[in-house]
Simulated scan of single mutants.
Amino acid sequence: MQFIIAATQGPMLESWRSGLAHVAGVDFREGYGTDVAHGADAVLLPFQLATDRYGGKPVIGFAEVLSNARNDGYPGKVVTTPPFPAGPVVTDSDVLCDRLFFTFSACFLAVQRHNAVSRAERIAVLLIHLEGAAIIKFPEEVAVSAFKRAVAAFDIG
């Protein structure tokens, strides 16, 4: 699988560019969601937004792949982040990194499952817009590290 990492402003991408310099299959784009979605098969969105717009039934700990029939400029598939159970706000960097690793891993697993049963609509390129996917709320070094770990942990080719 390949990735498009995007943000509305170039400086937000610098940590990602440097942190992922040796990770193959990552493209970086600057702009708003639908403006940078060309060439992507799916977009990663927070489960709250995704299920509100595209349907689905959130299940704690599981990501989903939803169909986008809205003709809204986003790709035909939407990968939702997995919901977490309610609890206290987490501020510890190690715990945040583990949660983000789990989030990315659950999303990649959902894509693998989708691709295994849907050969005609395979997801080969996933758009991750840092603001749109709400990843911007995490410290950059934590988010980059979690993404890198998840990519390394999965056979996502």
Results as ranks from 00 to 15, higher is better:
residue 20 L to V: 04
residue 21 A to P: 15
residue 21 A to T: 15
residue 21 A to M: 13
residue 21 A to H: 08
residue 22 H to Q: 13
residue 23 V to R: 02
residue 23 V to S: 06
residue 23 V to N: 05
residue 23 V to W: 01
residue 24 A to F: 02
residue 24 A to T: 09
residue 25 G to D: 08
residue 25 G to P: 07
residue 25 G to V: 08
residue 26 V to W: 03
residue 26 V to D: 04
residue 27 D to T: 11
residue 28 F to Y: 15
residue 28 F to V: 10
residue 28 F to T: 08
residue 28 F to L: 12
residue 29 R to K: 15
residue 29 R to C: 05
residue 29 R to Y: 11
residue 29 R to N: 09
residue 30 E to Q: 15
residue 30 E to H: 11
residue 30 E to F: 08
residue 30 E to V: 15
residue 31 G to D: 03
residue 32 Y to M: 13
residue 32 Y to A: 10
residue 32 Y to H: 13
residue 32 Y to Q: 13
residue 33 G to A: 12
residue 33 G to P: 05
residue 33 G to C: 12
residue 34 T to V: 09
residue 34 T to Q: 09
residue 34 T to M: 00
residue 34 T to F: 05
residue 35 D to H: 13
residue 35 D to G: 13
residue 35 D to Y: 02
residue 35 D to W: 06
residue 36 V to A: 10
residue 36 V to T: 14
residue 36 V to Y: 06
residue 37 A to Y: 04
residue 37 A to K: 07
residue 38 H to N: 12
residue 39 G to S: 06
residue 39 G to F: 06
residue 39 G to I: 08
residue 39 G to Y: 01
residue 39 G to W: 07
residue 40 A to H: 07
residue 40 A to F: 03
residue 40 A to Y: 01
residue 41 D to H: 12
residue 41 D to A: 05
residue 41 D to W: 04
residue 42 A to E: 03
residue 42 A to R: 09
residue 42 A to C: 08
residue 42 A to V: 07
residue 42 A to I: 14
residue 42 A to Q: 05
residue 43 V to E: 07
residue 43 V to S: 03
residue 43 V to L: 02
residue 44 L to D: 00
residue 44 L to P: 00
residue 44 L to Q: 04
residue 44 L to N: 07
residue 44 L to A: 08
residue 45 L to W: 03
residue 45 L to D: 01
residue 45 L to T: 02
residue 46 P to N: 09
residue 46 P to K: 00
residue 47 F to Y: 08
residue 47 F to P: 00
residue 47 F to T: 02
residue 47 F to I: 00
residue 47 F to A: 01
residue 48 Q to F: 06
residue 48 Q to L: 07
residue 48 Q to N: 04
residue 49 L to W: 02
residue 49 L to N: 01
residue 49 L to I: 07
residue 49 L to D: 06
residue 50 A to G: 02
residue 51 T to D: 00
residue 51 T to I: 00
residue 51 T to W: 00
residue 51 T to F: 03
residue 51 T to A: 02
residue 52 D to I: 00
residue 52 D to F: 13
residue 52 D to Q: 12
residue 52 D to V: 06
residue 53 R to C: 14
residue 53 R to K: 14
residue 53 R to N: 08
residue 53 R to A: 14
residue 53 R to V: 08
residue 54 Y to P: 09
residue 54 Y to S: 05
residue 54 Y to L: 04
residue 55 G to N: 04
residue 55 G to I: 01
residue 56 G to L: 09
residue 56 G to T: 07
residue 56 G to F: 05
residue 57 K to P: 00
residue 57 K to S: 05
residue 58 P to S: 12
residue 58 P to Q: 09
residue 58 P to C: 12
residue 58 P to Y: 11
residue 58 P to A: 14
residue 59 V to H: 06
residue 59 V to A: 10
residue 60 I to D: 12
residue 60 I to L: 14
residue 60 I to C: 13
residue 60 I to E: 15
residue 61 G to T: 10
residue 61 G to V: 12
residue 61 G to Q: 13
residue 61 G to R: 11
residue 62 F to P: 00
residue 62 F to C: 10
residue 62 F to M: 14
residue 62 F to K: 15
residue 63 A to H: 08
residue 63 A to I: 11
residue 63 A to R: 10
residue 63 A to V: 10
residue 63 A to G: 10
residue 63 A to K: 14
residue 64 E to L: 11
residue 66 L to M: 11
residue 66 L to C: 09
residue 66 L to W: 10
residue 66 L to T: 09
residue 67 S to K: 07
residue 67 S to Q: 14
residue 68 N to Q: 05
residue 68 N to R: 02
residue 68 N to C: 02
residue 68 N to F: 04
residue 69 A to R: 15
residue 69 A to F: 15
residue 69 A to P: 11
